[in-house]
Design a binder for these strands. Structure first.
Lengths: 145, 145
DNA sequence: TATTGTTATACTCTATAACTATA
DNA sequence: TATAGTTATAGAGTATAACAATA
């Protein structure tokens, strides 16, 4: 792991590039969250899948892939892992027997609640007003197109 | 009235998690920027290194690694590639002969200027006031610790 | 014929340890 | 003894194509 602290003053051109800052900030957040989730056997990716599986209308794997910007083939392994541990269950979608919906089990719900408590939201590192603004702009960027 | 794509409606828990939004937004931005930079033979990573090498006091590889949150061993390949193409040059730091400073060549400066023009800053996708706020908060998150 | 999940495969990225040359 | 760069390597993540079942 590289990690130490870097000088924000350096790289004047980069420091004003939102794309670069976005990447840097997300790496910082992901590393911290992965560390926090490790005791639960989760990573941000598997945690994200689990969160989606909590939905009242559980998503298909295809929907999970789109939401997480992953290739559908990557979702297979993520769901396999969660299913092996009894946190989610695959069920054939009655409306389209090709598709499989991924729904959280009771234990999955329980673990997810723990995980949510354990992940200190990055929002807590900025003051309340900024957090609201940050969330709105990020949602716009994350789902644009 | 949701200003975002229907996608965002799903995964209520996730959509409010700044860490997730950060990741999603950075993936979107990185994919778009990589595509835009491809004709120049650059990716966001190599572009970032090139930007840093433009500094008046060129950074050492160690400094590049810290700034980009990479392991020093990863920087080697990035600099190798840029040096092979004549965009940067390695020079032994006279103050510490173990270290090597990475400075952009004239051609490196030229390519970097093109790259900067080609990369449409994500800031242009949000309105001016938001962009300023976004940059401030992201810089705080990206360099916290 | 098109799409969902799946498998296989190759490619990139990341992480770790060891080596060299300097300090 | 410690640090900068390098190399090698293993692991994780990503991207692509092909296949079976279903539409």
């Amino acid at each position: 792991m590289p990690a130490v602290h870097a000088d924000a003053a350096r790289g004047a051109a980069l420091a004003q590039n939102a794309s670069f800052l976005l990447t840097r900030a997300s790496v910082v957040a992901a590393q911290r969250d992965n560390k926090a989730l490790a005791p639960l056997g989760l990573k941000v990716r598997s945690y994200s899948v689990l969160c989606l599986a909590l939905d009242e209308e559980p998503p298909t794997q295809r929907e999970i892939a789109e939401y997480l910007r992953l290739d559908p083939s990557q979702v297979v392994a993520l769901v396999d892992d969660l299913e092996d541990r009894g946190l989610v269950a695959r069920e054939t979608d009655p409306r389209d027997r090709r598709a499989k919906v991924v729904a959280a089990t009771d234990e999955g719900r329980s673990i997810c609640a723990e995980a949510r408590a354990v992940v200190t939201d990055v929002s807590t590192h900025v003051d309340a007003g900024d957090a609201v603004i940050l969330q709105r702009i990020l949602a716009q960027l994350a789902f644009e197109e």
